[in-house]
Amino acid sequence: MPIKSLEELKAIRASQMKKVKLRDHGESDDQQIEILIGMATCGIAAGSREVLNAFIDIIDTENLDHIKVIPVGCMGYCHSEPTVQVNIPGQEPILYGNIHPEDIQNIIHKHIENGELLDDHILIQTFQTIR
């Protein structure tokens, strides 16, 4: 289909942006919220892949450009898989356990948007990591 005007081009651009959004890392890291998902064997067995895809779905449908989902290895809390860590710039990272696809709306809307933590899922960090 020939593009007949600048407006048409911009419309096409808008529809294509989602496809390449994964590759953008923003001008400044302080805007970017990271969601880390434990994707080791224990996590996958407990359903972390479904959790990850559910995050991707919500972010896509609601155009939450500032949230980035990163699969990571085992976080050490195999008893509470799937585990999800939310890193908001300037705040302490929050680690959640036993997260299932139905909890994701709450993480996005309650925690990230309104700052309300999901008390039932919080895991207390019991160790320190070297930097």
């Binding site: 593009i3 005007s5 600048l6 081009l9 911009k10 096409i12 651009r13 294509q16 942006m17 496809k19 390449v20």
Partner: peptide
């Protein structure tokens, strides 16, 4: 379309 997604052909469109 990946080129367009990164602002491709917008310069041409603006100019024309």
């Amino acid at each position: 379309f990946e080129y367009i997604a990164y602002g491709g052909y917008e310069a041409l469109g603006t100019v024309l």
